[in-house]
Each structure stands twice: as structure tokens, then as C-alpha cells.
Amino acid sequence: MSGELFAFLVLALLAILGGILMLNLTKVIHMLLSLVLTFLAIAGLYVMLSAEFVAIAQVLIYSGAVTIIMIFGIMLTRHNDEQKTRGNLTRNIIVGAGIVLFFFTMYFSINQVSFGDQATSLHVENTKQIGVELYSKYVIPFELMSVVLLVALVGAIILAKRDDEEEAEHK
């Protein structure tokens, strides 16, 4: 067993472990933290796939920003909340069955696929390659993305704020 395969297996197991923990824990905050484990494991996988920049971004944005936002969300609402029941059992069974069906279908499809070559130059100045591409070939999507972020920013503020004003008017 090569070191790379070993690293892959460990990271993959960690990622799946995080997901399964998320499904089975009861405290909301614990679920969230278990997912951080998954995100970190995925970042490790990115490194293995010669995508260092994406890996860093993953750690920063997912493990950092998104998770923190979610934790804030929990704190602002009901931070002691627990998953009391399993919810609608019938629906869960149906969803589970659908997912199992989907899983095996896709698994069957994946096994049919075989890919040829491997890219070899991705790890060489990875960040620079991305930068060059972004500012040349993908410059318009990149700029659009900044607009999306701006809209999301403004929208989030307005959404979170408007009720305050209305409440103030009512008072």
C-alpha cells in the first residue's frame, strides 16, 4: 500500500465519518462541528489532487466562514436546540430508499467510467495558473461573481434588518 493510497483512505474515512456523525448526533452544534471535520478532510483531498489553492480556499471559507456563520445563526436563534425526534418516519424511509436507489445507480454508472490521461502540470505554480486563467479566460464570470457576492451582502443585511424597522414602527 502506497502512502498516497493510505492518505486517501484516511481522509475519505474522516470525511464520511464526519457526515455520519452529522446525521446521528443530537445537538445541533455538534452536528455542525462534525461537518467541520468533513470539510477539513475534503481540503486534504484537494491537496492530493494537486489543487492547493482550492484546498486553502476550502479551509478558509467552509471550515472558517460558513461554519462560523452557521454557529452564529445557531447562537442567534436557539442555541440549545436538540433534534428531538427523527421526524416523519415514513418520509425518512422513502427518502432513504430513494437515496439507496440513487446511490447504486450512480455507483453502477461510475464503475462503467474510465478516464485516460492525467494532468501533470497542475501542481506547478498552481495559484498562478488559476490567477492567469481567472483574469484572462474567465474574467467575465469572475466579475459577475463579485456582483453576486455584493448582492448577497446587501441582501443579507436588508433581510436581517427590515424586521427591526417594522418592529420599531409598530412600537
Binding site: 471559507i61 452557521m70 461573481m145 457576492l149 448577497a152 451582502l153 433581510l159
Partner: peptide
Amino acid sequence: ITVAAAEAAVGLAI
């Protein structure tokens, strides 16, 4: 990732 971050922010606001 960018879109996901934006989505997380808006989702949380909602």
C-alpha cells in the same frame, strides 16, 4: 465555493 458562501450568508439572513 463563492456561490456557496453567498448562499450561506443569505440563507442565514432569511
